[in-house]
């Protein structure tokens, strides 16, 4: 997994420069490759930054940036050995404090991770959050997250991943079909409060995403997992494929973000006060649940079978209330 590299904006570059300087001072002698690995950036970004740092400094009393007021590096080591040695530094030697919002973002991220069973003992997380608060230049803003504890079976899944063991479990798929599965666990994905296991399913002989809350009778077997290097593992949870179902729906503008994962393309058309978009789903069973969970916000336009499936699903639900309904006054 290599993260997509985005062009850095000037404030990001400034943060990088201010963080790189104390690192280089502390390391004394460091290879460009090691520094790049430490910050998780391309080597060329390190070299560019070092060149900039080496000609930066203070205007000084005369306002002319004299050499004594500038950073200096061992140019021979840099140009011949690809090594960085800062031989003179000015003004900074420590890492900068975090902005309040930067600390708040990490604290909230940690609160989300608190839902994981391995973080159930919250003292380690609490002390880490306290450090982030102490490292911020102002009180972090009031952002907080409470997620219900994730399914306890994640503990076993985690153990299977780290131990390289196969898993066996009962699984109920979105079509309502149950069955015993055997799988090599690859990783745990989450999306908001939902947790998924991405695994190579021996039963289906392919990579599948399993909703953890649809798994039961989970067993970590003694069988080692197969070697899956080179296996194409999808980055995202929802993958379109040619066998999928394209469904045209009208959606209220405010609800469009809720469908973002299912949009087949980016085209929208204004139809009255609604937006007409095309969704791509694996099958109609997922669609009926999606639409029924957004009552009044999404209406299926086509195909007719999809419309009927949604109508049948909601009507069947409604009948449950009519049969047992108390007379309304």
């Amino acid at each position: 997994m290599t993260p997509r590299r985005q062009a850095l904006r000037a404030p990001d570059k400034l943060v990088f420069l201010l963080s790189l300087v104390p690192y280089l001072i502390e390391q004394q002698v460091i290879g460009v490759d090691e520094a790049a690995a430490h910050f998780g950036v391309p080597e060329e970004q390190i070299r560019e930054a070092v060149r900039l740092i080496a000609m930066s400094g203070l205007p000084g009393d005369t306002g002319t940036y004299q050499s004594n007021d500038l950073f200096d590096i061992d140019w021979d080591a840099f140009e011949d050995g690809d090594e960085i040695v800062i031989v003179h530094h000015v003004a900074i030697d420590e890492a900068p404090r975090l902005a309040a919002r930067e600390a708040a973002a990490l604290i909230a991220g940690l609160q989300y991770l608190a839902a994981l069973p391995e973080n159930a003992d919250s003292t380690a997380l609490a002390s880490l959050m306290e450090k982030l608060r102490a490292g911020a230049s102002a009180t972090p803003s009031g952002l907080a997250i409470a997620e219900p504890a994730a399914d306890a079976s994640l503990t076993s899944i985690r153990a299977a991943i780290t131990g390289g063991r196969q898993l066996e479990f009962d699984y109920l798929n979105a079509l309502g079909e149950g069955g015993r599965r055997r799988a090599d666990p690859l990783r745990i994905l989450s999306q908001d409060a939902d947790w998924y296991l991405q695994a190579f399913c021996h039963t289906r002989d392919d990579v599948r995403n399993f909703r953890v809350d649809r798994m039961s009778a989970l067993v970590v077997t003694d069988e080692p997992v197969a070697d899956h290097t080179g296996l194409e593992v999808p980055e995202t949870l929802f993958q379109g494929s040619s066998s999928d179902l394209d469904v045209v729906v009208d959606v209220a503008a405010e609800a469009l973000p809720l469908l973002a994962d299912y949009l087949a393309d980016s085209s929208t058309a204004q139809i009255g006060d609604r937006l007409r978009v095309t969704l791509r789903l694996a099958h109609v069973h997922g669609l009926k649940r999606l639409v029924a969970g957004l009552p009044g916000l999404v209406t299926v336009v086509a195909p007719a079978e999809a419309r009927t499936a949604v109508a049948d699903w909601a009507s069947a639900g409604l009948r449950g209330y009519e049969e047992t309904s108390v007379p309304e006054g």
């Binding site: 690192y23 902005a99 930067e102 708040a104």
Partner: peptide
């Protein structure tokens, strides 16, 4: 929030802890 997280992590890496 990923932009803020990224900046915070860059600053923290400046501490030189592996």
């Amino acid at each position: 929030l990923s932009e803020d997280s990224r900046r915070a992590l860059t600053k923290i890496r400046g501490l030189g802890i592996e």
